[in-house]
């Protein structure tokens, strides 16, 4: 870890460890956030992302390591830290017994926010969530995207300096996802610090200034998205689909690409110079292909493998 950590870093975790029985799910994680940045924690299912967030919130005690959040030692001062954090949990836990407005008001009271402040804040948050016109409906009638927006608005009720977002867009359609991204950029503009976990590499590339890729409880690489792509994978990817792709790989793909990965009927060719591959594919015409720039997903798949995790 960087020894010259920014003294006003909103979150510093060093050497975090957590085991469940014999299963060590967080093994020596270090994190240090810069104020005002969006930091992405990426990793396959079961990597330990949610557990890391729970540790930083003081909801479970680490078996090793230390955590400081907004100047508070966690978990000892977890309550004081949470007073200044906003949380979007992985699974919505809005209160089904209340309307949208009541959800915000009741949650605000948990922070000891007085009624006058709540009355002033709630309309703005309803606006932010795009739910002003439905403020007095119960939450059962809301779509997944609306619930997620409300959960995000709820996380802002205490005007937090730091937000934990655990897969904020999982399960949403593209429209809903873009709305959330737009809101998150908005929060970054206001100077809030975001710690985001996600499976969507696109989301990480769009929002995060720095990311860390986590697998089996360890951070296996970290840095700026572009730097990571440049460091780990070739800049061009040609994805080739169709029957006969294996033969083509032997005859052409593996000769012209620096690296090839096959999954079923698809071949991923990573290369600095895609021209010979494309020329050959165009001349054959029987294989479909897609040429694109390498992205974080390629880094992710290279480092964590293509095997299913569940």
């Amino acid at each position: 870890m960087n020894p010259r950590v920014n003294p006003i870093s909103p979150l510093i975790a060093t050497g975090l460890r957590k085991s469940y029985g014999a299963n060590e799910v967080v093994c020596g994680v270090d994190l240090a956030l810069q104020p005002g940045e969006c930091f992405g924690l990426l990793g396959p299912n079961g990597a330990g992302k949610t557990t890391t967030l729970r540790l930083c919130l003081g909801l479970t005690a680490p078996d090793g390591g230390s955590i400081s959040v907004l100047g508070h030692d966690v978990p000892q001062e977890g309550r004081e830290a949470r007073q200044r954090i906003g949380v979007v949990p992985q699974f919505d836990n809005l209160d089904p017994d209340f309307t949208i407005r009541e959800n915000l008001r009741v949650f605000g009271r948990y922070f000891d926010i007085d009624n006058a402040t709540l009355r002033a804040r709630i309309p703005a948050l309803l606006e932010f969530a795009g739910l002003s016109s439905r403020a007095d409906t119960r939450i059962q009638t809301l779509s997944g995207g609306m619930k997620r927006r409300l959960t995000l608005a709820r996380a802002l009720i205490n005007d937090p300096e730091l937000l934990f977002l655990d897969e904020p867009t999982t399960g949403l359609d593209p429209q809903a996802r873009h709305v959330i991204w737009e809101r998150l950029r908005n929060l970054l503009k206001q100077g809030k610090t975001l710690l985001l976990t996600t499976h969507f590499m696109e989301e990480a590339e769009r929002l995060c200034s720095r990311i860390a890729i986590m697998d089996h409880g360890k951070i296996i690489t970290r840095g700026e998205p572009r730097a990571l792509i440049a460091q780990h994978v070739e800049p061009h990817v040609v994805e080739v689909y169709g029957e006969g792709v294996q033969e083509w790989a032997k005859a052409c793909g593996r000769r012209h690409a620096e690296r090839c990965e096959a999954t079923g009927e698809t071949l991923f060719c990573y290369t600095r110079d895609p021209a010979p591959l494309i020329a050959d594919l165009d001349s054959r015409g029987d294989l479909r292909y897609l040429h694109r720039r390498a992205n974080i997903e390629d880094v992710f798949l290279k480092l964590t493998g293509r095997d299913l995790r569940d």
């Binding site: 699974f91 809005l94 949650f107 948990y110």
Partner: peptide, 12 residues
């Protein structure tokens, strides 16, 4: 309903 989870994300 996971109401307790929500409470625990607040300063309770």
């Amino acid at each position: 309903q996971k109401t307790w989870d929500a409470l625990l994300n607040a300063p309770l």
